[in-house]
Design a protein around this nucleic acid. Structure first.
Length: 968
RNA sequence: GCGGAGGUAGCCAAGCCAGGUUAAAGGCGCAGGACUUAGGAUCCUGUUUCGUAGGAGUUCGCGAGUUCAAAUCUCGCCCUCCGCACCA
């Protein structure tokens, strides 16, 4: 029997919407629960990975709703920043790849190719794109049964929302958290824009690498060499200049510098004023000398072909003792000084150069560069790869293990990893330092085809997370909030440590203008930090058609901070006092945000910013309470990516599998903290579990529920089921409270089914008792399952003729008096006995048994173990022996006591069993028919103290909770 | 490079924080059985090795250590994944 999930799901979704079931308004009589999940970015279709996060959030919302909370779960759409704008630009320019990408998404929502083309043609306006996908995604969410209050939806591009972001930035400015300064980033000279990962044709992983530019005194200016190892200036023996490449004397910020001609453009991009005075081939200065930074002694300039004029300044200082490239270049000149002749440098002059050893390091000689070159057997400068490997080796080794030698002035004796910064500081104090940026990988190519450089933005706006006091407050918030799973707290802590200054405005994309400098647009991550507050009033802004200009700074001050007085605010904004008050009240009711649920990849930015921005703006009682996280989703073992084309769109889920099947899969396939794999192959199993649930419900839920108490003398297995079900209520509640969602889902879909199926197989239960009990179980079960599979459960609920929606029904409470651990333990005896019988039957092979004698341990053993349990003794043979032998009741069994104590020691402690032999016998007797049927044997239960039949003397092996057997 | 997470049986995935009740939940796959015209449906059973009596051996990336006791704690090593700032 199949049930039409599609039809059922649609039906309930329509009713929920019609009755506004999930529209939440303040209700002071009920506790509130305000849950948020980041709004989706509306520039394309979502995939099943997004769905996992939203499904988990919805599960949390529904669970809390059933627990009696007034739950607010709102949603909006994100459209600010560069992605939508970028795609619009690419569509406008006729970019085929971009158009194809959009077409793929559009086909998911539109029937014909004509419609797709027509819609695509409209995507030259970011608002059209955003609205299209916002609507599509809302439909996707509805089709998955998410219990969202849509009245509060908005888009981050809304003018009213911009006002809110503006307010936030004024608050930061007031606090002095916003600063301006220079900032390097990847930049396309052709487009005149910074470039992000998406803008790159090649070198997508490129980052900015900072070189220290060292200004060596040279003639009436500086010879400027760039390095990653400024501490090596004490080991400089010469300079390397490419003889045939062009160099310049240039006025750089008023100083005379020698750099390669190719470096000039870069310096200009890096916010330096540069005027070229003279261009000349490198050969012109080769043979001259310049002065060391630390002691001013003369050092010669030599020619070298390996110098790349396009890398940094094209000027390289030589430290042959510690740099393999330099070592081998110098060695070559020693062996063959002839290239030096044209520059008037004699062979003696070169050979007179002494390699300087300036870093002490274990495992290396005084010249580590020499060691590295020789151990790799490098013969020539042309072996660039080997030389690079040697360089890396020395760099790493010296960084971690190296110590500055005596010839390093005040830095002598210090470790390299600590001394770098101080050496730079010291040189800076004498004006011998500047910085030069390069991309860390080459080549980096913009989509426009141009070579990407580093641009320095003078006057870049920053949020300074290191502003006095800010971090302390943020730490305070983090330390007092819940992070679930707790393992992600480390990542927050690492982020908090590392957060410093972050650019907060950029020059392109959609967004709110920076109020202090309208050329800049506020970085879109700042849109998503405190906007949960906006949900509390957004439906009133749209509902009352408030205009952006009414949403002034004092408006937000009043509504969110209670500042400024209602009369004054009403007058200034033209908003009625009633409306203002209702907004203030609504904010005060819902805030703070009780739980924010998203993916861990947002920890290092969005989530940390959310904490920082909250503490900056709101009083402590309105800080975030809890952040919960779930990892991403892989598709058939591989990471989903649009470029690889292995993306499973969320929109296809309800059609293909049904919302409840997906929800169950998404929650039960992995704990939230770990990566989940979507495997097509596993889906049918999930569907089958829901099918079983539905079938049991159809058969058993509509009868009159009745709870059989002990005094009603029901079958033992009925009491077992009642106990089991109530235990499951307890564990489900605990698991949901502790974010162990997978365990909850498994309990509800697997464990319950197994228990009920077992019960149905027990022949000893009278029909009436079975029906009443199962009706009770179904009533509990359907409510336990409702947060996970709401559509199916609504359907069952309505068939059960219950009032209202199960979505709003109450979460079951465990009935403690029905939970009886001993009966669950006793049930284990039945199962383990059956398992043992099967095992023996297997071993008997040819011999067919007809009858099994089951021996229950003697009563004194039960008493003995109970007594040990009560005494809470450590598992030490002597101690337990002493305890038991001191009691004459046990003493008389002397040798056997030793046996069970040995067994306890071997098992590393006590095990569960019924409290008396009589109980165990009763349970086994009650299950005898069932066992007999399952095993195909006659089952005889016997007391081992007086067995009626024990031809092989097996009875003596029986232990409490572990029967002994004889098969014949 | 910096920071974070992780490596568990054929596969996926719990357990690890709070060591013992763990040959290690659950799912998939596989095998056998039941029900059946059939079963890709459902249910039951089994799925490390040895064993004609319920027992024993060896297992949780590799190696060492702490402990009466380690998948769980400590140290070293190997490997995988994720984030790193104009990308949301």
């Amino acid at each position: 029997m199949d049930y039409d999930s599609r039809k059922i799901e649609k039906k309930w979704q329509k009713r929920w919407t019609k009755d506004g079931v999930f529209e939440a308004d303040p209700d002071p009589s009920r506790p509130k629960f305000f849950l948020t999940c980041p709004y989706p970015y509306v520039n394309g279709a979502l995939h099943i990975g997004h769905g996992r996060t939203y499904t988990v959030a919805d599960l949390i919302a529904r669970y809390n709703r059933m627990r009696g909370f007034n739950v607010l779960f709102p949603m909006a759409s994100h459209m600010t920043g560069t992605p939508i704008q970028g795609m619009v630009d690419r569509i406008k320019s006729g970019d085929q790849v971009a158009m194809e990408q959009y077409k793929r998404d559009l086909r998911l929502y539109l029937e014909t190719e004509e419609e797709v083309e027509a819609q695509l043609a409209k995507f030259i306006d970011p608002w059209v794109t955003a609205r299209f996908f916002a609507k599509a995604i809302r439909q996707d969410f509805d089709a998955l049964g998410y219990s969202i209050d849509w009245r509060r939806k908005f888009a981050t591009g809304d003018k009213t929302y911009n006002q809110f972001v503006t307010w936030q930035y004024h608050k930061f400015m007031d606090k002095g958290y916003i600063k301006q300064g220079d900032y390097p980033l990847l930049y396309c000279p052709n487009d005149g824009n910074p470039v992000g990962e998406d803008d790159l044709l090649e070198g997508a992983t490129a980052k900015v690498k900072e070189f220290t530019a060292i200004k060596f005194d040279f003639e009436d200016g500086y010879l400027v060499a760039a390095t990653l190892r400024p501490e090596t200036i004490f080991g400089v023996t010469n300079m390397w200049i490419h003889p045939t490449e062009e160099y310049v004397w240039a006025l750089v910020n008023g100083e005379k510098w020698v750099v390669s001609k190719k470096a000039v453009k870069k310096l200009k991009l890096q916010a330096k004023e540069v005027e070229v005075l003279e261009t000349f081939p490198g050969s012109k200065i080769i043979g001259k000398s310049f002065q060391a930074v630390h002691d001013g002694h003369d050092i010669p300039i030599f020619p070298a072909e390996f110098v790349d004029p396009n890398n940094a300044t094209g000027v390289v200082y030589s430290v042959p003792g510690h740099a393999p490239f330099d070592y081998i270049a110098l060695r070559d000149l020693w062996e063959d000084p002839s290239p030096l002749k044209p520059y008037g440098i004699s062979a003696e002059e070169v050979r007179a150069i002494e390699i300087i050893s300036m870093i002490e390091m274990k495992g290396y000689s005084e010249f580590p560069a020499k060691d590295a070159v020789e151990s790799r057997n490098i013969k020539s400068q042309a072996q660039a790869e080997e030389l690079e490997a040697a360089t890396q080796e020395i760099y790493k080794a010296e960084f971690y293990d190296g110590v500055m030698k005596d010839n390093c002035m005040q830095f002598s004796g210090r470790e390299i990893k600590d001394v770098k910064e101080d050496v730079v500081k010291w040189m800076k104090s004498t004006n011998h330092i500047d910085v030069f940026y390069e991309p860390d990988v080459r080549p980096v190519v913009c989509k426009c085809g141009a070579d990407v450089q580093i641009g320095v933005f003078a006057g870049q706006w920053f949020l300074d997370y290191e502003s006095t006091g800010w971090k302390d407050e943020a730490w305070k918030a983090l330390n007092s909030m819940d992070i679930v799973p707790e393992t992600f707290r480390n990542l927050f802590e690492a982020t908090f440590d590392w957060l410093a200054q972050r650019p907060c405005a950029r020059k392109r994309g959609i967004g709110t203008k920076l109020p202090f400098d309208e050329e800049w647009i506020i970085e879109s991550l700042s849109d998503s930090t405190i906007y949960m507050a906006f949900y509390t009033i957004s439906h009133k802004i749209t509902g009352n058609k408030l205009k952006p200009e009414q949403l002034t700074l004092s408006f937000f001050d009043y509504v969110f901070l209670g500042k400024g007085g209602i009369k004054k605010t009403a007058k200034e904004t033209g908003i009625s006092e009633d409306l203002l008050k209702s907004m203030r009240d609504e904010f005060a009711y819902w805030y703070p945000n009780d739980q924010r649920h998203t993916a861990p990849s947002h920890i290092s930015n969005h989530l940390s910013f959310a904490i920082f921005h909250h503490v900056a703006i709101f009083p402590e009682k309105h800080w975030l309470k809890c952040i919960s996280l779930n990892e991403h989703v892989n598709l058939e073992g591989a990471r989903m990516s649009k470029s690889k084309g292995n993306v499973f769109p969320l929109v296809e889920i309800p059609q293909k599998y049904g919302a409840d099947v997906y929800r169950t899969y998404a929650v039960s396939a992995a704990e939230p903290g770990s990566l989940m794999d979507w495997r097509e192959r596993d889906v049918p199993a999930v569907r089958n579990r829901l099918q079983s649930f539905m079938e049991i419900m159809q058969k058993h839920s509509t009868k009159e529920p009745r709870v059989y108490l002990k005094k009603d003398k029901p079958a033992a297995i009925t009491r077992w089921l009642l106990s089991k079900v109530n235990s499951i209520i307890e564990s489900c509640t605990q698991n949901l409270d502790n974010f162990r969602l997978r365990d909850y889902a498994i309990a509800v879909t697997s464990e319950m089914t197994r228990a009920v199926n077992h019960y149905l197989r027990r022949p000893e239960v009278p029909k009436e008792e079975r029906e009443g009990t199962l009706a009770y179980v179904c009533d509990v079960w359907v409510r336990l399952a409702a947060p996970l599979i709401p559509h199916t459960c609504e359907e069952v609920w309505s068939k059960m003729d219950r009032d209202g929606y199960i979505s709003l029904a109450s979460w079951p409470k465990p009935d403690k008096k029905l939970i009886d651990p001993s009966i669950e333990v006793a049930h284990q005896v039945v199962l383990s006995t059956m398992r043992d019988v099967r095992e023996i039957m297997k071993l008997l092979k040819d011999t067919k048994a007809k009858k099994v004698h089951v021996y229950v341990a003697p009563e004194w053993m039960f008493q003995a173990l109970n007594s040990v349990r009560e005494a809470e003794l450590p598992v030490i043979v002597g101690t337990i022996m002493k305890h038991l032998m001191s009691n004459p009741d046990f003493r008389k069994y002397g040798k056997q006591v030793k046996n069970i104590v040995d067994r306890v020691a071997k098992e590393n402690g006590l095990w569960d069993h019924s409290s008396s032999a009589a109980d165990e016998i009763a349970v086994l007797l009650g299950s005898a028919n069932y066992m007999s049927e399952e095993l195909g044997l006659e089952v005889v239960i016997q007391n081992s103290e007086s067995p009626e039949c024990d031809p092989q003397n097996k009875a003596r092996f029986a232990l409490p909770g572990r029967t002994s057997l004889f098969l014949e």
